[in-house]
Design a protein around this nucleic acid. Sequence first.
DNA 1: TTAGTATTTAACCATACGGTTAAGTAACAC
DNA 2: GTGTTACTTAACCGTATGGTTAAATACTAA
Lengths: 116, 116
Amino acid sequence: MTADQLSLTFAALADPTRRALLELLSVRDMAVTELAAPFDISLPAISKHLKVLARAGLIEQGREAQVRPCQLKAEPLKAAADWVGIYRQHWDESFDRLDDYLKELQAKPAGRERKH
Amino acid sequence: MTADQLSLTFAALADPTRRALLELLSVRDMAVTELAAPFDISLPAISKHLKVLARAGLIEQGREAQVRPCQLKAEPLKAAADWVGIYRQHWDESFDRLDDYLKELQAKPAGRERKH
DNA sequence: TTAGTATTTAACCATACGGTTAAGTAACAC
DNA sequence: GTGTTACTTAACCGTATGGTTAAATACTAA
């Protein structure tokens, strides 16, 4: 318990059912029963998985009548991606892509130029 | 058990001690005692963490006399980064960077031009 | 052979995880 | 009110996790 955010995020991602739930939610917001449909496990099991995802800040649940629609909140994934990204140079034997990446970062440092 | 590779990888990353071990190994190969030095936990505890990392394919241990040097193997992190990367568009409210990223991918599709 | 260094394995403990079924709660529909 | 739908919570179970200490292993050094 009292785990740091990054540990919570990675722990949440360490289960294939939870990853699949996030994939469903990346398409659109969904109710719990709707989310549970593709899986062979009980609704309470799904409810528990959603709780883990919520604790990690990866989803938020609203309320509309009896339905509790779930929404993806991907922000914590950014920190996870950043942490893993540090090792890019290690898995990419050639450093070409790191080079490119660094160049890209320097090319557009912070400012967000308009596009579409 | 018999968890898929991605689950093993994320589970291995879900502990701050193990992430710190990987960070140490990203600098250079290290022996177990050497790796354990910065931590307040027992050597067997470190040994267990290393076993988890090894099972996830994130390290390999050799042997030199009594010493068992550990080496970082970052390949599994690539798959993790790829999975998380799918959500880039979701955490980046503006889609600018996705645009850039897609453009970048189209600009240099596969070929790996020399550099340094 | 004996001793020392480096590391793992064994045995144990408490807590967390992923699942179950059964019971509880919340909002609508009649 | 009663019932129905959509969940969540409670209680339980087996296994995994993260830690401990103590014993075993593997190799080097004397």
